[in-house]
Amino acid sequence: MKQQLLLIDDNPMMGGFLTHLFGKDHDVMWCTTAEEALGWLQKRNLPDLIICDYELTGISGLEFLKHIKKTGFFKDIPVMMLSGKTNSENRIKCLEAGAEDFIMKPFNPTELGIKVGNLLTKSNEIAKKAY
Protein backbone atom coordinates (compact mmCIF):
# COMPACT_ATOMS: atom_id res chain seq x y z
CA MET A 1 0.00 0.00 0.00
CA LYS A 2 1.34 3.42 -0.96
CA GLN A 3 1.98 5.98 1.75
CA GLN A 4 -0.22 9.06 1.56
CA LEU A 5 0.97 12.65 1.32
CA LEU A 6 -1.16 15.72 1.92
CA LEU A 7 0.17 18.70 -0.06
CA ILE A 8 -1.06 22.19 0.76
CA ASP A 9 0.01 24.92 -1.65
CA ASP A 10 -2.08 27.62 -3.30
CA ASN A 11 0.29 27.96 -6.27
CA PRO A 12 -1.02 25.75 -9.12
CA MET A 13 2.45 25.31 -10.61
CA MET A 14 3.96 24.18 -7.29
CA GLY A 15 1.00 21.96 -6.41
CA GLY A 16 1.11 20.34 -9.84
CA PHE A 17 4.88 19.88 -9.66
CA LEU A 18 4.78 18.28 -6.20
CA THR A 19 1.85 16.05 -7.19
CA HIS A 20 3.81 14.89 -10.24
CA LEU A 21 7.05 14.49 -8.25
CA PHE A 22 5.50 12.28 -5.56
CA GLY A 23 2.48 10.82 -7.37
CA LYS A 24 4.29 7.84 -8.84
CA ASP A 25 5.30 6.35 -5.49
CA HIS A 26 2.69 7.84 -3.14
CA ASP A 27 -1.01 8.56 -2.93
CA VAL A 28 -1.15 12.36 -3.09
CA MET A 29 -3.95 14.65 -1.94
CA TRP A 30 -3.39 18.26 -2.99
CA CYS A 31 -5.32 21.07 -1.30
CA THR A 32 -4.99 24.74 -2.23
CA THR A 33 -6.01 26.11 1.18
CA ALA A 34 -5.54 25.16 4.82
CA GLU A 35 -9.33 25.22 5.21
CA GLU A 36 -9.70 22.62 2.45
CA ALA A 37 -6.96 20.48 4.06
CA LEU A 38 -8.63 20.68 7.48
CA GLY A 39 -11.93 19.60 5.95
CA TRP A 40 -10.23 16.64 4.29
CA LEU A 41 -8.50 15.66 7.55
CA GLN A 42 -11.77 15.92 9.49
CA LYS A 43 -13.25 13.25 7.18
CA ARG A 44 -10.98 10.75 8.99
CA ASN A 45 -8.15 10.95 6.45
CA LEU A 46 -4.74 10.38 8.05
CA PRO A 47 -1.83 11.05 5.71
CA ASP A 48 1.64 9.73 6.48
CA LEU A 49 3.15 13.18 5.85
CA ILE A 50 1.92 16.73 5.29
CA ILE A 51 3.88 19.14 3.08
CA CYS A 52 2.57 22.66 3.62
CA ASP A 53 3.45 26.06 2.17
CA TYR A 54 4.11 28.75 4.77
CA GLU A 55 2.18 31.44 2.91
CA LEU A 56 -1.38 30.46 2.07
CA THR A 57 -4.53 32.43 1.30
CA GLY A 58 -6.81 32.45 4.35
CA ILE A 59 -5.37 30.44 7.24
CA SER A 60 -1.56 30.61 6.98
CA GLY A 61 0.61 27.52 6.85
CA LEU A 62 1.96 28.37 10.31
CA GLU A 63 -1.56 28.63 11.78
CA PHE A 64 -2.50 25.33 10.12
CA LEU A 65 0.59 23.70 11.63
CA LYS A 66 -0.19 25.05 15.11
CA HIS A 67 -3.78 23.85 14.84
CA ILE A 68 -3.02 20.27 13.87
CA LYS A 69 -0.18 19.91 16.36
CA LYS A 70 -2.62 20.88 19.14
CA THR A 71 -5.21 18.36 17.94
CA GLY A 72 -4.64 14.97 19.53
CA PHE A 73 -5.85 13.07 16.49
CA PHE A 74 -3.40 14.75 14.07
CA LYS A 75 -0.47 15.79 16.28
CA ASP A 76 1.73 12.82 15.34
CA ILE A 77 1.52 13.40 11.57
CA PRO A 78 4.92 14.72 10.46
CA VAL A 79 4.79 18.12 8.77
CA MET A 80 7.33 19.60 6.37
CA MET A 81 6.94 23.32 5.70
CA LEU A 82 7.93 25.05 2.45
CA SER A 83 8.56 28.75 1.93
CA GLY A 84 9.96 31.12 -0.63
CA LYS A 85 10.95 33.57 2.10
CA THR A 86 14.48 33.17 3.38
CA ASN A 87 13.60 34.64 6.76
CA SER A 88 15.09 32.44 9.49
CA GLU A 89 12.47 33.79 11.92
CA ASN A 90 9.76 31.97 9.91
CA ARG A 91 11.76 28.72 9.99
CA ILE A 92 12.22 29.01 13.74
CA LYS A 93 8.48 29.68 14.29
CA CYS A 94 7.59 26.56 12.30
CA LEU A 95 10.12 24.34 14.04
CA GLU A 96 8.96 25.63 17.44
CA ALA A 97 5.36 24.88 16.45
CA GLY A 98 6.26 21.26 15.72
CA ALA A 99 7.30 21.05 12.07
CA GLU A 100 9.73 18.22 11.45
CA ASP A 101 11.49 20.09 8.65
CA PHE A 102 11.50 23.37 6.70
CA ILE A 103 12.58 23.61 3.06
CA MET A 104 13.31 26.83 1.19
CA LYS A 105 11.91 27.43 -2.31
CA PRO A 106 13.36 27.02 -4.82
CA PHE A 107 14.56 23.60 -3.71
CA ASN A 108 16.41 20.73 -5.29
CA PRO A 109 13.79 18.04 -6.07
CA THR A 110 16.26 15.27 -5.21
CA GLU A 111 16.96 16.82 -1.79
CA LEU A 112 13.23 17.23 -1.15
CA GLY A 113 12.61 13.61 -2.17
CA ILE A 114 15.30 12.36 0.21
CA LYS A 115 13.94 14.43 3.11
CA VAL A 116 10.38 13.24 2.43
CA GLY A 117 11.62 9.64 2.27
CA ASN A 118 13.45 10.02 5.58
CA LEU A 119 10.39 11.48 7.30
CA LEU A 120 8.15 8.73 5.91
CA THR A 121 10.57 6.04 7.09
CA LYS A 122 10.66 7.56 10.57
CA SER A 123 6.86 7.92 10.60
CA ASN A 124 6.48 4.28 9.53
CA GLU A 125 8.82 3.08 12.30
CA ILE A 126 6.88 5.05 14.94
CA ALA A 127 3.57 3.63 13.67
CA LYS A 128 4.93 0.05 13.84
CA LYS A 129 6.06 0.55 17.45
CA ALA A 130 2.59 1.88 18.38
CA TYR A 131 0.94 -1.38 17.26
Rank of each mutant, 00 (worst) to 15 (best):
F102T: 07
S88D: 04
I92G: 12
G23Y: 06
T57R: 04
E36V: 06
H26P: 14
M1W: 08
L112I: 08
E63Q: 11
T110E: 08
Y54I: 02
I126C: 09
T121G: 15
I77E: 03
M104D: 13
I68T: 09
T57C: 08
H67R: 15
E36Y: 01
E96I: 09
I59C: 03
E100T: 14
E111W: 06
K122P: 01
D27K: 15
A127M: 14
S88N: 06
K24W: 03
L49M: 13
V116A: 12
G39W: 05
K66S: 07
V79F: 02
F17S: 06
P47K: 09
K66N: 11
E100D: 12
N90A: 08
G23A: 06
F107C: 07
T121H: 12
I114N: 08
G72C: 10
F17H: 01
M81H: 07
L112E: 10
I92S: 09
M104Q: 12
L5E: 01
L7T: 01
Y131F: 13
G84I: 00
G61A: 02
L95N: 08
L119V: 05
I77T: 03
M1E: 06
G16L: 02
L18S: 03
H26I: 14
K69N: 08
I50P: 12
E89C: 02
F64P: 10
K93N: 12
N124E: 12
D27I: 08
L41V: 09
T57S: 05
G23W: 06
I68L: 14
K122M: 03
P106G: 00
T110H: 04
L21V: 05
E55N: 08
L65N: 04
L41C: 14
H67L: 13
Y54G: 01
G84W: 00
M104W: 03
D48H: 15
P12F: 00
N87M: 03
Q42D: 15
I126Y: 13
N45P: 07
R44S: 05
N124S: 10
M29H: 13
N124L: 10
P106M: 03
H20N: 08
K105Q: 02
T57H: 10
A127E: 15
K43W: 00
K122E: 07
M1L: 10
L38K: 04
D101E: 07
A130E: 14
I103W: 00
P78T: 04
G23P: 14
L7Q: 02
I77A: 00
V79D: 07
Q3V: 11
T110Q: 04
W40S: 13
R44P: 04
L119H: 14
A37G: 06
K85L: 00
T121N: 10
D25R: 07
I51D: 14
K66M: 11
D9S: 10
G23N: 05
M1R: 13
Y54V: 03
D25K: 13
P78K: 05
G23T: 13
S123F: 09
G61P: 02
L41A: 00
K105R: 03
I51N: 13
G117C: 02
F74K: 05
L112W: 09
N124Y: 15
E125Q: 14
D101S: 11
L62N: 11
S83W: 01
L112T: 04
D48V: 09
P47A: 07
